[in-house]
Design a protein around this nucleic acid. Structure first.
Lengths: 207, 207
DNA sequence: GTCTATAGCGGGATAGAC
DNA sequence: GTCTATCCCGCTATAGAC
């Protein structure tokens, strides 16, 4: 509901269009004028509701962090069998990124352009909590002989790499291969299965 | 040699500082005034030698592409044994990115902000040539039973993911873990070894 | 709450003196 | 080749009428 632009309150229309523009064109590449025009209002309204461009940007940035972290944190702290957990973990990332493919590029890029201002916002979410639980899990499974000896931090980084990079590479890949969005989506969907298989093969001991 | 700023010609000083600034702050985040000041000259000189900001940017962008592609293309078309080739392939990426860690973020970000203008420049390099040779190689080795059945495109994407993402993630990781550049460099160096092991384990059939 | 008008700054580019 | 001065534009933010 409320897909109709006209039915949304001005404030929400601004938020919605700001999200599109900031994520696609970045902070520097987006002007308050662009946001005002896209949401069918004017510059004064944007500042009336959000005080400043940067303040509006911070709200969008936090929303993007939510998308990338909330569901995944829930998923990886569950008590499923280890290979099932890994499969669902990867699948959750692909499902999220299928819907919001530009978010990893957006976040990493804005953080690298403005580290002082933005990293604290990520730290506030305490990502260590969720990840240390996974680390413990990996250690236990290795002791049981279910998986190979595996440094948890390196493994975590591999999962992030294998899930995020294909979407960050998407724009480039599509134009290089001269295929439209749909076709790349299909490639990505089959890539997900390969990534799961690849990861599980890498972890499984050869008995 | 010529490390001393004063000994370089004005044109080369501008190129050098423009590289730093464009790669670190992006096209939109860098002004011609910044470049002029950093190279100890003025705006008029930058335009005298390079006509426009965008023209100068294109030169820097091409240089960045060179860094990321030239050595790797040579490496992966060699006739080494397959596992040795994979090890050297990954190692080459890590060696390059150790020296220029910001380049993948820079390229992917600028392409996503300006796809029409920049992707043609990548296509011109004909990356298919090198990659199709690797694809053939993977197919042959799978037939011989040296490695598992492996879709070449997916495998290539995994290699890119596992090599590039850790550097793109670097800025964020460093501030999250509250460690300085040196410490992250050490983590990356040991991560390289894990990535090689991980990849080879994923490929090796369990005999 | 909404809008027009404008202040005030920083951007890219160039004219023209030397 | 080099530099100063300047044009003109687009940006963020706000004042003030309604």
């Amino acid at each position: 509901m409320f897909n109709n632009k006209e039915l949304l309150e001005v404030k929400d229309r601004i938020l919605k269009e700001a999200q599109q523009l900031f994520i696609r064109r970045g902070y520097k590449g987006t002007s308050v004028r662009d946001i005002a025009k896209a949401s069918g209002t004017n510059v004064a309204m944007v500042n009336y509701y959000f005080q400043s461009k940067y303040n509006l940007f911070e709200i969008i940035f936090e929303q993007a962090l939510d998308v990338l972290t909330k569901r995944v944190f829930e998923t990886i702290t569950s008590d499923r069998p280890i290979f099932e957990l890994i499969e669902i973990w990867i699948h959750t990332y692909y499902e999220i990124l299928f819907e919001y493919p530009e978010i990893p590029t957006f976040i990493l890029n804005e953080v690298s352009l403005n580290p002082e201002g933005l990293t604290q916002r990520i730290k506030n979410r305490n990502p260590y909590g969720a990840f240390s639980k996974v680390a413990q899990r990996i250690e236990d499974e290795a002791k049981k002989g279910e998986i190979r000896e595996t440094p948890a931090a390196d493994f975590l980084l591999n999962i992030l790499s294998l899930c995020m990079f294909p979407f960050m590479f998407g724009n480039l890949a599509m134009t290089l291969m001269e295929i439209p969005r749909d076709a790349y989506d299909e490639l990505i969907a089959s890539h997900e299965k390969y990534v799961i298989e690849f990861t599980i093969n890498a972890l499984k001991p050869c008995k």
